[in-house]
Nucleic acid binder design. Structure first.
Lengths: 260, 260
DNA sequence: CGTAGCCTTGACCGCCCTCAAATTATGTGG
DNA sequence: CCACATAATTTGAGGGCGGTCAAGGCTACG
């Protein structure tokens, strides 16, 4: 449970203590899922938000021949399906890519306190805006960039997002999904992702090995990717944020540390 | 001005007369734009929605080398920037692809009447959901489908969306953007779009010539594209909708008929 | 220790890109 | 209404990035 509090702190540091309490109060206890579980059963009952607490999830859709396209990742601290609470429509699915702990936010609890907590409402809208901006970056990425640029951009983004919730250590972080999960996000084949990872390694830009990402040359990697972290609306640049974050809270837990 | 009324009728046919009046009342007079104009000057003053009345616009973003990626089209009746009114962020731009007439919806007028017109609010959320679903389709399209599938899917979508606002005639419609505009939406080169159009023509699936799209074999085209129009939330399938629409309103105007 | 999934590597191929030029619309001023 | 300039479409030849297929090695987990 301290993990949840830490996440709320990291991701919702713009909020005051009172509003963070409202948020915590609306959250259910964490649920645990294995890999490749459907996280949002679309026959769902009440509208609800979902927050990833540990592990990585992905929104995805499939073609008729079974090919999967991952439309977005969700890291710890990410809230998804904000919009589904307004529009009811769920035409895409969310899957756990690793073991995942997830909490549900009772929509009606949040609505009830919306008047008293305008900052909370604003914060959720900000998260939606970030998700949309990220989607646009992914469209740009898959559409117009080469394999090495796509991969570089994705790794930059992953590192930056994880650093925002205190899950990086120095120039590295855990990134425990498979190369197939990367391929389906970048619209490449797993084979080519593998080759491109080697290329990044050879160029001494970054390594991804044994589920651990290490940024070897951030400026060069950013340049290759044309990565401009502004769309993520982080409070600090990834590398500064990292040191600040580790100072204020020891990283006593990590994604998918102890599955069910 | 009758054009605006017709659009409100077609696109907002789920609304009652009173709510359509509210919508009309919040709209400014149409503004006219030439081709390739920026439609949303991000230094904008008050938050506002925008509705395309005639012509076609596109949300886009560019790489550093100048390559353009079109992230979505906006046809007559489409409302965009709903979300910007909540989250303030405008990190993508919208451009007219043809001559365009556009009206602005005063956000504060809509907010003021939100309580009295819950159906209107619901309708806007539905439009947002459709836009999101369409974005996901485009991600699938660009990421995992071949050139001929992408193009087929895009043409199916364009035809369906135009039929929903009464801008198709039989199995054809005006589609007055350039092959470059298609290429930038599909993440292809204009040259290859051209070749793929010929391929569609040779297969007798569809033709796009002199700014006019003609669907020659809808079932076969749907099959190639794996097009499932459900995500557009139309009230009727494109070809049925077409006949109903032309019955209730003679198509006395078309996109970019008489520019400024 | 066995098995299944993931990663790695190689050889080959094809879809789409690139570059270039010809041809055809589109639009503008005389 | 025509001459001209500009943009868009069309066509060709050639090349490369990433896909496909296949096999072998590694790791995790029971």
């Amino acid at each position: 449970m301290t993990t949840v509090t830490q996440l709320v702190f990291h991701r919702f540091s713009r909020l005051g203590e009172a509003e963070r309490q409202v948020l915590s109060g609306a959250m259910t206890a964490p649920q645990k899922f294995g890999r490749h579980c459907e996280l949002v059963n679309s026959g769902g009952s009440l509208p609800a938000l979902h927050m990833v607490l540990s592990g990585i999830a992905g929104r995805y859709d499939c073609l008729q021949n079974g090919q999967r396209q991952i439309l977005g990742y969700f890291f710890p601290g990410d809230v998804f399906d904000v919009r589904a609470c307004f529009s009811q429509s769920t035409d895409s699915r969310v899957q756990s890519l690793t073991t995942v702990q997830m909490a549900t936010l009772r929509w009606h609890d949040l609505l009830a306190s919306a008047k008293r907590s305008p900052g909370l409402v604003r914060e959720f809208w900000r998260l939606v805006a970030v998700e949309d901006a990220t989607t646009r970056q992914w469209q740009l990425n898959a559409g117009r960039r080469s394999a090495i640029q796509r991969l570089s951009h994705l790794l930059c983004e992953c590192f930056a997002r994880l650093s925002a919730v205190g899950l990086t250590e120095g120039d590295g972080c855990l990134l425990p999904f498979s190369q197939t999960d990367i391929a389906d996000a970048l619209s490449l084949t797993p084979v080519h992702v593998n080759r491109t990872l080697m290329e990044l390694r050879a160029a001494e830009l970054a390594t991804l090995k044994a589920r651990r990402l290490t940024i070897l040359d951030a400026p060069a990697l950013y340049a290759v990717a044309e990565f401009e972290p502004a769309y993520l609306q982080l409070k600090a640049a990834p590398f500064e944020a990292r040191s600040e974050v580790t100072a204020t809270s020891p990283s006593t837990w990590r994604p998918s540390a102890t599955p069910a």
